[in-house]
Every structure is written in structure tokens, then in C-alpha cells.
Design a protein around this nucleic acid. Sequence first.
DNA 1: CCAAAAGTGTTTTTGCTACACCCATGG
DNA 2: CCATGGGTGTAGCAAAAACACTTTTGG
Lengths: 217, 217
Amino acid sequence: MESPILATDVVVFNIRKWKLKVLLIKMNKEPFIWQWALPGWFIGINELCIDAAHRILFEASSVSDLYIEQLKVFDSLDRDPKARIVSIAHMAIIKKDDLSIKTNDRYTDIAWFDVEDLPIMAYDHLEIIKYWYERLKWKITYSTLSLSLMPEKFTLTELQKVFEIVLKKDLDKRNFRKKLLKAWVVQDTWDKKTIWVPRPAALYTAIHSDLEFVDLL
Amino acid sequence: MESPILATDVVVFNIRKWKLKVLLIKMNKEPFIWQWALPGWFIGINELCIDAAHRILFEASSVSDLYIEQLKVFDSLDRDPKARIVSIAHMAIIKKDDLSIKTNDRYTDIAWFDVEDLPIMAYDHLEIIKYWYERLKWKITYSTLSLSLMPEKFTLTELQKVFEIVLKKDLDKRNFRKKLLKAWVVQDTWDKKTIWVPRPAALYTAIHSDLEFVDLL
DNA sequence: CCAAAAGTGTTTTTGCTACACCCATGG
DNA sequence: CCATGGGTGTAGCAAAAACACTTTTGG
């Protein structure tokens, strides 16, 4: 019995210039030549899906050391015109200060796109991004996922801004701080942010490095 | 490049004798001969994962027409000792009055097991069941998934009992009815259940046949 | 007429929302 | 000394939780 081929596509989120961005690469092969797409490739026969996602992302963009989450299979029969390929879609999140991206010769270009302003895309990749975007919005409200978007140390105002950017709505400063501090997921570093702010702001850091489930909003 | 083989395993839930049950089949081949396992098989090259799940379930147990949901990939390298097989696990739910199960000659036996009292199982199937059980508990609180466990017509007390069995905790009768009726997901059939109850109880039925997302608890 | 489950409202508690002023620093 | 974002508490309201008695039928 012949089996579909297994691949993975990775949606990489990051916040840059006060916008939620997604990492896309430009294809240099048919059938979608010159179109933008998600970084993706085949899963090796002795490879975990999540390892494949890490590897592919590193190969395409030299990015490593990030939060990555597996879920949701995309398997429509016509998603790839050349072969029957089932894709296990992943979501990755890059901390705000991980910067350098550069691609290899498998692609012609790599760039960050605003989630609200995506180009025409190859395959069903637009659908995959929309799915993960909805999930991201939902998941930051009941887990510490938002902290993966932050640098090592951050102020509460910066964290609040991340929520406002992702959720596209304003939050009340006092209520936000109350709930967040009550959840015991961040701790004061006793360090202060002194540049770019009139009054020094307390810098916090995540208590746990792995994902925890707590109501934050 | 060689690719892992794609398969699917299906966790089938049902409520029988006031217990939450899972459907298992007994294998008649190595490497797990005589052990219990989830119904599962390979996905065809031109087959949707969810169609494969339906087909496999029908082949193994002659069960059809049920709620089925795809999610979560199980892909540890050592989950199958003979080959590298990645499994897309599904959850299926059978209405209380779908009864007949019988297997084919691919397996030696088929039976319902209490979720709280599972036998030693082949592969990583125990892990798969535990995952879906947690998800089931969570999902019935914010969707109409619970209605998939009910027969065509049911009383509110019966529905409450299903919640109590799955969640393993008692609920307040008045609060339960208030929230449930306010969610507008069931309607009175003006029919009455008269057998086995002292006072005739109103029979309700689901308004929508597909899954809706509403807070029920 | 008694046993057994059906059915029904109100009060209390809790958590969420809305809201405005003083503080510390750099220029 | 002024502009700028940092930091803090309380009151009102809506949703959730706790709670007990009357009704209908079969035996």
C-alpha cells in the first residue's frame, strides 16, 4: 500500500515594529515559482516531526532556539498539485531580540510579513497561517505563550503592548497588571529599564521556561 | 528521500452502564499478538485522514455515522518496533444507542473497556487514549460535544449524568439546567419519557447536528 | 399513601470592569 | 519645571455558586 508523503510547514511569529509578523520564503522552483510560502520540507524517515520543523527552520533562516509547537494536519487531496503530501503544521515563536535571518540557495528570498497584510501565497499556506493566528490569539489568554514573544527581561508595559498587538484591542493597565502578577508567572529582576523611558521601569522575567497553563485574561 | 508511513488510530468513546468506555480490538499478529489496541490502519495515498478513520472504524467494528474529530500526531521513533510509522490520532464518539459491534478477521476480538480500567496495550495507545480523555473532559465544557454522546431524545437528567460521568464530579441540578437552557442548544420535543421514571420527564433533542462552540459549564 | 425522581427561584459570593491621580526621571 | 510614561486602589455590577421544597406518577 502506497502512503502519502509527510512534510512539515512552520508558521514563525515575531513582533517587529509594533506589528505581528510571519516569516515567509520565496520559492525558486515550480509549481509556485516566485511565490511566497511558509518554510517547509519533508520529514525524514527517522526524524521526529518537531525535529524536522527545527531543522527546516534552521536551514531556511539560520534561526534556532525558539518555542515551537506541533499541531494540526493539513491533508486536502489537492493541496499540492504534484504529489499527495500531508503536512504537519507547526507554530514557532521567536523572542523579540532574535534577529538575524538569512536563507540558503533553496529559496530566493526571505522576509517578515505583517499578518494583516499577507501576499498571495503558494499551496494552502494562507489557510495555515490564519489557523495558527486564531490559535495564537486564543492561547496567549490561557497560557504563558506570550512570554515566548518577549526578550529575556521586559517591562509590564511592553508585555501589555504585545497582548494588545496580537489581540488587536486595548487593555486596562491596572487590571492587566493585577491579573498577571496574581498568576505568578513573572518575577521582578530588581533591574530597571532606564533608556527610552522617562521614569525607570521595573524589568520582569519569566519564572518558568516551559509553557504553563494559567488564565492571564 | 524516504518518508515515514502514515497511519491513523481511532479512540472511540461511548457511555455504557454509567461508565465512560473506549473501544479496543485484540491483535492477532506480531509484534503485539494477543494484546489490546486501538482500531487503526494505514492511510491511502489518495485518502483524507478523516475518511481513513471512518473507513478503518467501519472495517474493524461495522460502526458508522458518528462524530469524529482529527487531531494530534503521535510520532515517537520507537512507537512501532517494525517500521517508522507516524499516527494521526482521531477521536470518535458514538451515540448511546448505537450498539452493534463486531469485528472482522483482521482481529481476534473487540470489546468496550472502562477508561479508568484499561488493559495492557500495544504501541503507545495508552498514551493516545489518555490524551483524548483529557481533551474530551475539557471540550464538553465549551462545546456541544456532549450531545454526541446522547441518543436522539434524552432527558436533562440523563445529560447531566453524562457530564458527571465524564468529568467525575457532581453538578448542581438547577444551575446545570439554567446554563444549558440559556445556551439554546437543545429543544423540548414535547415528548415524555415514561418508563423507569416515577414522574414523566421532558425529552429534549439537539438543535444542531454539527458541533457548536458554547459555554455549557 | 409512599417512594422516587422531576422540576423550579432566590440569596450570597465572587470575579470582572471601569475609572483618575501622583510619581520619578531626563532634558 | 515640564513632558512623558510608570505605577497604584476602589466601587459597582454581572455572573456563578449555594441552597430546599413542591410536584407527579407507579406500585
